[in-house]
């Protein structure tokens, strides 16, 4: 675990804080598109786009699109933070 000596505690804590903020953001959106949308599905169904009642659409496809975006967004941002805080892993051989 020599990486703990290589990166200072402050640096690691800052990095972890950034991570927690991004994780919280991701989970909030995740919660809204699944549970909040399902909770208000009847109200949302009054909006019909292209034949799809919006509440139904969020359950069937909308939430899925957001999930895929959320994960890639998380991955790219975290990979960027790694560099920013000097905690990225050694280049792969």
């Amino acid at each position: 675990m020599k990486e703990l000596q290589e990166v200072s505690k402050e640096q690691r804590d800052l990095y972890w804080k950034k991570n927690i903020r991004l994780t919280t953001f991701t989970l909030v959106i995740w919660f809204v598109v699944t549970y909040v949308c399902a909770f208000f599905v009847k109200e949302l169904n009054n909006v019909v786009i292209f034949g799809f009642p919006f509440g139904y659409y969020m359950g069937a496809q909308g939430s899925l699109i957001v999930f895929v975006w959320l994960i890639f967004n998380y991955a790219f941002k975290m990979n960027k933070y790694d560099k920013e805080f000097g905690v990225e892993e050694e280049e792969e051989k």
Partner: peptide
């Protein structure tokens, strides 16, 4: 019908948890 979408959301949304946790 709509209620069956629990499976669709459940079996995909879990990957968000997997990704961040």
């Amino acid at each position: 019908g709509y209620d069956g979408l629990a499976y669709i959301m459940g079996w995909t949304g879990g990957y968000v948890l997997l990704a961040v946790f």
